[in-house]
């Protein structure tokens, strides 16, 4: 008894949408980065599910690369957060509107 592929796609869609909504509605930069992790994980679930159902290992290799990019993104993102906190003592996105006209 196997789970249909569409179940994985629906799960992935739900998690991805949660990430998008999190990026849009939260004001804490750390939560926004966590929401980006949610979206990356949703795509990874898709990759692994397709890799299993199409019997092709390439999907898992791409999850590996996505993981690498996620690690790099976290390192740079958190460094930016620390630099921002040092200048404004805040991690609220509403406080950073220097480039906003």
């Amino acid at each position: 008894m196997n789970v249909p592929l569409s179940y994985y796609l629906i799960l992935s869609a739900i998690v991805f949408t949660t990430g998008v909504v999190g990026v849009l509605i939260r004001r804490n930069i750390i939560i926004i980065l966590l929401s980006i992790e949610l979206m990356l994980n949703a795509t990874n679930i898709n990759f692994v599910a397709f890799s299993y159902y199409l019997q092709n290992i390439a999907g898992q290799v791409f999850v590996f690369f996505a993981l690498t990019v996620a690690a790099a993104e976290v390192a740079v993102g958190l460094a930016i957060i620390i630099a921002l906190y040092r200048t404004k003592a805040s991690i609220n996105v509403d406080d950073f509107q220097l480039l906003k006209w």
């Binding site: 799960l11 998690v15 949660t18 990430g19 939260r26 939560i31 966590l34």
Partner: peptide
């Protein structure tokens, strides 16, 4: 799904 909603 539950924990991802909790994260947000």
């Amino acid at each position: 799904v539950l924990t991802s909603i909790l994260v947000v």
